[in-house]
Each structure stands twice: as structure tokens, then as C-alpha cells.
Design a protein around this nucleic acid. Structure first.
Length: 809
DNA sequence: AGCACGCCGACT
DNA sequence: GTCGGCGTGCTC
């Protein structure tokens, strides 16, 4: 028997199955989807089995070394999905597979050295070499990489020693996590024997008798830890019984349940609105059909989409099928998780970035082994390895976070559709402000359109005012709060109500400039201004993390006249305290929520009324629901509009609508105040009027005129290198190549320097194509890019290809 | 991607 | 004469 293996060498020349012979002792443990370790060249690496065959055309097929998991991580469906992703997003197969699995399954490779018999006898000429050999002999087996670190410059000697056979290397493919195990106590003999043994025990062995009696009463295995705790016995008593052969102990794998021991508040039975009922019925109808189908559920903020999700999942489970729910990472809040845990209890696995690698792996295994039937998580949860998938829900489907910004650059929406197709499942994409692409599809009837235009209990949408900040300036108001907003804040303070203030930018200021010499602080590795963070007196680069302490002096001329421009959350916080003495502000942004669980902490504090203002970035725009919030303020609505992005208007509209949706969801009516320097922009005006249809129509017109999605598809090519002339030359060559080989109907743009022309000391140039859905454009690009990469394998030049890009940076 | 093999310049 | 530069080719 032979196995076809995709190996962990994601490169042009190795992105294909390699044939290995399966040793007979491994055969029973191996199937399609297994993760294996295998010899490759002179090293040892891991790979995934994608096929089995009786014969092979390869003459020197080598033996597989080992099978790495009891349950194969990949299912046949996931293998097919991985192949599809590789074609769709132009990435290597191995990269696709790895992206579908938890990080725990990413092996680390260790090479360790030890002396051979020859090596022990050899007498070396140089004392230095003799010393090194003796060091290895003492510590062997010793890690190769570590040795290189301790003895830099000895690499050539080590290689020679290996060549001459004085040293031997052994490589290990090692998992990154260990399975957590727990010692269990099990009866080793029949009840009768144990009973007799208990009676025969000497009097002073009272603890042992107690334990035996306990095990007889219990009738099932128990964790040693728990047994000892319950009887306040010591381990030695238990051990004594084991050595008498009456009990035995066994290691059992344990799930690290991040939610263990927590009670979840049960929700009162909900009564559905007529709209909810109708939508649920429609989805359930589709669930009952064998064909795949997808819906776009457009429901205004506060229309009760979550209840629809919960109810349809319930139906899905009753049909003995499984469900995946995707939510944006930042709205994967405890409140949200609680609702699913409360309804489905042990049936739910939760996957989010707050979990440790081990916890994530354990949740994943619950899914893989069919012990849970619902997976809730962020983007990558779309790969939850269910085998009977019935329903996939993507909440806030317009969210940019569903697009992965590294290889494979997939979009979860598209992967969801592919998986639904493979399973005959139903997908539901929910949003108050659907992505243009999604709404467009829904109007073309390939997708069913479901609408929930009213808030639960017909609560009114909040009233929205837009303030022209240019006017404020003319009237002599130079603060960052317009008079209307300041008054709004004042009123809420006096009424004891709460408010949410939103600013799409973290830090204190956007750029820092010296007023003496005009020098502005730039990152030394990226072409980007540094951002000042007041809390710890540092300036930081948001791209590479470069940090400079002490920004009080100009690095160029030494002057102390440093000025901070622009507005960040920290600055707003300061201004608030200045304008409204005594105000209690809870600030949430990447800087204050860095630590695990701090996100939850701040929200709880706000809920408990420990602050009047919740001030934050993106992360407070979604899903939050606080009864006492009656005012939502947007400090600067234009931040996104100024970005070099054809989706800027769409993102502004979505953001303003979402933020506005945080107000007045309960008894108290809500008000929204948007401050802007472009108050007449259609994205702002239409968000004010809650008019999605009109926005859709206008934006579609723009996209049509400019040949942008959804009318045209885009592929973005980015070249990077520390060598400027080289990038320019290569990018140029590439564009000429495309011009020659692609149909003339394809638009070619660039090459130009990227909006951020340098990141981490690499210069960046980019070009883009726009094309209609011509069948094999992507496969042509794949051929071209593969030969480009091959031809330039000795140059330090990177090429990244982003199919349907979201960020044009 | 790694790693070995193999062919040309500056050192013991 | 050898060490080490990096171009070329291969990995089941």
C-alpha cells in the first residue's frame, strides 16, 4: 500500500502529492486525512495523506515514519475543500490544509546531535574542536539549533563532523501541545472480590477500606484527584490498593473546558415577532430539502436576528445535523457565547482567540469526534470539522474580518458556500448592512433574500443628527466636541443615563511633528508615521510594532517643541475629563484590552454603571446591548472616507449604521450624533436616514462606473524587496507579462508604489487587474506566478497575490 | 523551503 | 593547495 502525501514544504516545486510506502504496522492506523511524519530528502517532516493506492509509479518510494494522530485531522470533505481553496486563492495545498486546522497540529522540527562510536575515538587537531566534541558528548542528545546559537561559527565544523560520521543527527517531528491527561481510578476485580478484600483488610488500613467501599458504591471510574479530595485520603492509600491488584489507574485524556463550572443563565421562552416567525419557517423549509441553499437575512439593528439563529439551529440539531455560527471576533463576547451555551449547553464548542492553544485544540477535537454539534467562533471556525453539516450562519456578514489577510487569503462567506455545497447545507448570512456583493447576489435570485425591517416591539430607530464640524469651527468652537454633542453629553450626565462615544482610531495622536525643524516621527523600518501613546509615553509603529521610548525630544534637532496632531482615543478621554469634570470614562481599544479577559471586564464595569461613557474604537460598534445607553456619538465620521479604498463609502455607511444601532434598544429612546467634515457625503446622509436601499443603488452606480466589484473582480499583486530597483524592475516585467498573456478585456493597473511603500525594511510595489468572471483567468495567473517565482528563486523578492482583495494597501 | 553538490576567488 | 561563496537541482 502507498499513501499520497502533501508535505510541509509549501513551495512551487513541492506542491503536489508524494508517494510513500505504508509499513504494515502503520496500515491499521492510517486513512485519508491522516497526519503523518515522513522522510523528505535528508530531513523529516510532517504531511497529510490525501490518497491511497495499491501501486505506485515512483521507484524509490520511501517508508512513512509514523502516524501522528489517533483520529485523522482532515475529513475527505476538508481535503476537497482544501484543494478548492488552493485553486481559488492561489496558495499551496499544504497552506490550505494547515489553515483549516488548529495551531496545535503544526509540528515543530527538532534536530538533535549525538556522538557516534567513530566520533568518540577520533582525536581532533584543534583544541577548540576537541572541546566542542566533548561538550556534545556530555550533553547528548543535544539540540542542533541551540548548539549553533551557543557556538556561532562552528557550523562548518559540525557539518563536516556529520559528513565524516563522527556525529549523528536525529530528527523528531514534535507536536506543539500535549494532550492533558488525568489519572483515573478503575476497579481491577469483580465487586465480590473487592468486597471480600475490603473485609480482609487489617483494621489500621481504614482509609483503604473506605476507598474500596466508595468505588463499590460509585460503580464507575473516577479521577484520582476527585477521589482523594472527597475522602480526604492520601495518594499512598490508593497506591496500596493498586499494588494489591484490587484497583488500577489509567490515564484518560481530558478536555480543557474553558467554560467549566460556569452556570449559564437560561433565557425566558421567546415569543417571535411575525417577521421572525416567517424567516424561521423559510430557513427550516430549506433545511428540509437536500439541496444546498443560501439566504441573505437583512434585519435592521435590534430586529432580533440572534433569536432566528438560535431557533433554526435547534431545528437543524433535531434533524441530526450540525451547525456552524460565525461572528466577528470582536463581538464574540461572553454575552454572545452565553446565549448559545444557555440554549445548547454541552452541544457547543466555542473557538476564539482568547483560548490557549491547548484549549482551542480541545474544543476542536470535540467537534472532530462528533461530541458537540454546534461550533461558534470567528473566521476560522468555518473549518469546524463536522461531517453532517446542515446549517452555516454568518452574522454581520459584511464585516471585513471574514477576509483573511494572510495566506490562504480566503473569505469565510465564500468558503461557507463551498462547504454548504459539499454538504447540501443551508447558509444564512445576516446583517443590517449587507456587503454590496451579497445584496447584489440576493437581487439576482441566486440567494434568497429575507428581511426583518422592524425592531423588536416596533421600537423606533434612533434619531440621527449630523453636525458639520466646519461650521463649529467658524462659530469659534475649536474643541473636538460640537455644541450639540457637548449638550447631549451634559444631558445624559444629569439624567444618569449612559452613552457610547466612538472614534475609529487608537492611540493619542496620528502623527508627531517637531515644530522647530518640521521633522515628523517616522518608523525607521516602515514608511509610516509613528503614533504617540500617552499612557506609557511611547511612540509606536502600528505596522511592525517598533517602539520608541521618550518622545519629548526631536531626534533630528533635539528641540523640545514637539506637537501631536490628529485625535486618538486617549486624547478624547483627556478632553472629556477636561470638559466634564468628574465624568467616568471606560476606554476600550487594543491598548486597554490587550490582556485576556480585559475586554469582558470593561464591559461588565460599564454595564454595572461604573462609568457614564464607553469610549472606544471599532470593537464597540457591534453586538453590544446596554439598556441605559441613550446617546451614541461619533467623534469623526470621516476617518474611513479618506482612505485609499473603493469600499470607503460602504464601510462608512456600515459603521455609522452599526454604531447607531447601539442606541435606544430598550425602553429609553436613543439619539445618535455624528460629527463630520463631509456631512453631505451620501454615505453619511443615507446612514442618517437608515436608508440602505438608496445607499445600495447609489454605491452600485459608482462601482459600475469605475469597474469595481461586484461588476468586476480584482486581483492584487504586491512585490516586496529590500532592493528598490529590483522591485521596480520585477513589477514592471510582471505587468508586461500579464499584458501579453491575459485577454485584452482585462484591465491592468500599475505598477505603482504601495500606499505603504515600505514595511519592515522591504519596499513594496503593487499592480492590480480588473476582470469579468472569465473562467480561467485565475489558472492562467497561477501558471504565470509559478514560473515567476521559479525564475526568481535566487532573488530576494516576494510576490503576494490577493484574489478579491479587501485592503488595497 | 532546505540541503547537497559543484565549480570559481582569497587565505593558511 | 583548501575554505567558502552562491548558482543548480532534487526531494516520494
Amino acid at each position: 500500500m502507498y499513501a499520497q502525501v502533501i508535505v510541509d514544504v509549501p513551495h512551487v516545486e513541492t506542491d503536489k502529492p508524494f508517494d510513500y510506502h505504508i509499513p504494515s504496522e502503520l496500515r491499521p492506523h492510517l486513512t485519508i486525512g491522516s497526519r503523518v511524519s515522513a522522510p523528505f530528502g535528508n530531513r523529516k517532516i510532517q504531511g497529510y495523506v490525501v490518497g491511497l493506492s495499491e501501486t505506485t509509479s515512483v521507484k524509490k518510494a520511501r517508508d512513512l515514519e509514523d502516524v501522528l494522530d489517533v483520529v485523522p485531522p482532515l475529513t475527505p470533505e476538508l481535503i476537497e475543500l482544501g484543494e478548492w481553496m488552493s485553486e481559488r486563492y492561489l496558495c499551496r495545498r499544504y497552506v490550505s490544509f494547515q489553515a483549516m486546522l488548529p495551531a496545535a497540529l503544526r509540528s515543530s522540527y527538532k534536530k538533535s546531535l549525538s556522538l557516534t562510536e567513530d566520533g568518540k575515538q577520533i582525536t581532533l587537531l584543534i583544541p577548540q574542536e576537541r572541546q566542542l566534541m566533548r561538550f556534545i558528548e556530555e550533553k547528548q542528545p543535544i539540540d542542533y539549533d541551540q548548539l549553533l546559537k551557543n557556538f556561532p561559527g562552528e557550523k562548518s565544523f559540525l557539518l563536516k563532523a556529520l559528513r565524516e560520521g563522527w556525529l549523528q543527527a536525529e530528527q523528531v517531528v514534535k507536536d506543539k501541545v500535549t494532550r492533558k491527561t488525568l489519572l483515573y481510578v478503575i476497579k481491577a476485580e469483580s465487586d465480590q472480590t473487592l468486597q471480600q478484600a475490603a473485609e480482609a483488610l487489617p483494621k489500621q488500613a481504614s482509609k483503604q477500606r473506605e476507598i474500596l467501599q466508595f468505588m463499590l458504591d460509585l460503580q464507575h471510574p473516577i479521577a484520582l484527584r476527585d477521589l482523594l479530595a472527597q475522602l480526604s485520603a492520601s495518594q499512598s492509600s490508593a497506591q496500596a490498593l493498586v499494588s494489591k491488584g484490587l484497583l488500577k489507574m489509567e490515564e484518560v485524556e481530558e478536555r480543557r473546558d474553558p467554560y467549566a463550572g460556569r452556570a449559564f443563565e437560561q433565557e425566558a421562552k421567546v415569543v417571535f415577532t411575525p417577521e421572525q416567525r416567517e424567516v424561521i419557517d423559510e430557513i427550516v423549509f430549506a433545511l428540509n430539502r437536500p439541496q444546498p441553499f443560501s439566504y441573505l437575512l437583512r434585519g435592521v439593528t435590534g430586529s432580533g436576528k440572534t433569536e432566528v439563529y438560535l431557533e433554526t439551529i435547534e431545528h437543524c440539531l433535531q434533524m441530526d445535523r450540525q451547525a456552524i455560527v460565525l461572528v466577528p471576533e470582536i463581538s464574540l463576547t461572553p454575552q454572545m457565547v452565553n446565549r448559545f451555551k444557555a440554549k445548547f449547553g454541552d452541544q457547543v464548542a466555542v473557538l476564539h482567540s482568547g483560548l490557549s492553544r491547548g484549549e482551542r485544540y480541545d474544543e476542536w477535537r470535540m467537534i472532530r469526534e462528533g461530541k458537540v454539534n454546534v461550533a461558534v467562533g470567528a473566521r476560522s471556525a468555518i473549518f469546524a470539522p463536522f461531517t453532517k453539516l446542515g446549517l452555516i450562519i454568518i452574522d454581520e456578514e459584511h464585516e471585513g474580518s471574514y477576509k483573511q489577510e494572510e495566506n490562504p487569503r480566503y473569505h469565510a462567506r465564500e468558503v461557507a458556500k463551498k462547504r454548504a455545497e459539499l454538504h447540501g447545507a443551508v447558509t444564512v448570512f445576516g446583517s443590517a448592512t449587507p456587503a454590496l456583493e451579497s445584496y447584489y447576489e440576493a437581487t439576482k435570485t441566486e440567494t434568497g433574500l429575507l428581511e426583518m425591517p422592524y425592531r423588536v416591539n416596533r421600537r423606533p430607530m434612533p434619531s440621527v443628527s449630523v453636525v458639520d464640524m466646519r461650521d463649529e469651527l467658524k462659530q469659534g468652537n475649536r474643541s473636538m466636541f460640537s455644541r450639540l454633542l457637548a449638550q447631549g453629553i451634559e444631558t445624559r450626565l444629569s439624567r444618569g443615563e449612559q452613552m457610547v462615544l466612538f472614534l475609529n482610531r487608537r492611540g493619542f495622536s496620528t502623527f508627531v511633528m517637531c515644530r522647530s525643524c518640521g521633522h515628523s516621527l517616522q518608523c525607521p523600518h516602515c514608511d509610516i508615521s509613528l503614533t504617540y501613546h500617552r499612557s506609557n509615553q511611547t511612540v509606536r509603529c502600528h505596522y511592525c510594532g517598533h517602539t520608541e521610548r521618550d518622545a519629548s525630544e526631536c531626534p533630528d534637532c533635539g528641540s523640545k517643541h514637539i506637537r501631536y496632531f490628529g485625535t486618538g482615543t486617549q486624547k478624547v478621554e483627556e478632553e472629556l475629563s477636561r470638559h466634564f469634570p468628574g465624568i467616568r470614562v471606560i476606554r476600550m481599544d487594543v491598548d486597554t484590552t490587550g490582556r485576556k479577559g480585559s475586554h469582558e471586564k470593561w464591559l461588565t464595569q460599564f454595564r454595572e454603571g461604573k462609568g457614564e461613557v464607553l469610549l472606544g474604537t471599532q470593537m464597540i460598534a457591534k453586538g453590544l446591548d446596554f439598556p441605559k445607553v441613550t446617546l451614541v456619538g461619533v467623534i469623526a465620521a470621516d476617518t474611513i472616507l479618506g482612505m485609499p479604498d473603493f469600499r470607503a463609502a460602504e464601510r462608512t455607511f456600515q459603521l455609522l449604521t452599526q454604531v447607531g444601532g447601539r442606541a435606544g434598544r430598550h425602553e429609553l429612546p436613543g439619539e445618535v450624533i455624528i460629527q463630520s467634515y463631509n456631512p453631505d457625503h451620501y454615505s453619511i446622509q443615507l446612514a442618517k436616514n437608515h436608508d440602505f436601499e438608496k445607499f445600495f443603488a447609489m454605491e452600485m452606480k459608482h462601482r459600475y462606473e469605475q469597474n469595481y466589484p461586484p461588476f468586476y473582480r480584482l486581483v492584487l499583486f504586491t512585490f516586496s524587496s529590500p532592493d528598490v530597483p529590483l522591485v521596480v524592475k520585477k513589477a514592471d516585467e510582471w505587468v508586461k507579462q500579464l499584458k501579453r498573456k491575459l485577454p485584452s478585456s482585462v484591465y491592468l493597473l500599475g505598477p505603482v508604489a504601495s500606499p505603504i511603500p515600505r514595511i519592515k525594511d522591504r519596499y513594496r510595489f503593487q499592480c492590480m487587474i480588473k476582470y469579468r468572471d472569465e473562467a480561467d483567468i485565475l489558472s492562467q495567473i497561477k501558471l504565470l506566478s509559478d514560473s515567476f517565482i521559479y525564475a526568481n528563486r535566487n532573488e530576494d523578492i516576494g510576490l503576494t497575490i490577493d484574489v478579491d482583495p479587501h485592503m488595497l494597501m
